[in-house]
Design a binder for these strands. Structure first.
Lengths: 70, 70
DNA sequence: TCGTAAAGAGCAATACAATGCACCTTCAAG
DNA sequence: CTTGAAGGTGCATTGTATTGCTCTTTACGA
């Protein structure tokens, strides 16, 4: 999963939950400015920031061994 | 997957591949100092750094919706 | 058409990740 | 015991993620 895809997943998931960037900001304690940057692919967020967002969005970060038959 | 677990996964995978931190550093273009910090849980790496390491280690970063029956 | 909500972006300040360097400890091979 | 490989850590520097503030644009409903 590339960096860009991760940003897209965040954005899509947020929309699927029907909340705004502003909502996500207050729920996650990640600043609105940072969320805007991430979702518009301007960012290279830290793991902590990504974790905070994923948590609010009911998502999970996984680091797994690549499968050959993927 | 918590931040600490991710660090541990990196470390375990590196050892399973039988390479040193120094090897990983030169293969990934992430500095040795940064790898040391991450593996000893002192770090909050950026997504790019994590991605570079995962790539060399044959691992993949995933952001998925949490399953209820996990 | 007007007003409002939502998202994108420029700018400056602050916090901290990434890096290089030096040094220490541990541990296994000789 | 000595040596060398590997990992961990303190410190200073550099780069950049994070943040707040402000402004613009877009889209939708009154």
């Amino acid at each position: 999963m590339h960096l860009q895809e991760i940003a897209e997943h965040i954005k899509e998931r947020r929309k699927a939950l029907g909340i705004s960037q502003e909502d996500l900001a207050s729920l996650s304690d990640v600043s609105l400015r940072t969320i805007k940057a991430i979702e518009s692919n301007k960012g290279n967020p830290t793991l902590q920031t990504l974790y905070d967002l994923a948590n609010v969005l009911g998502m999970e970060l996984k680091l797994v061994i690549k499968q050959l038959n993927a």
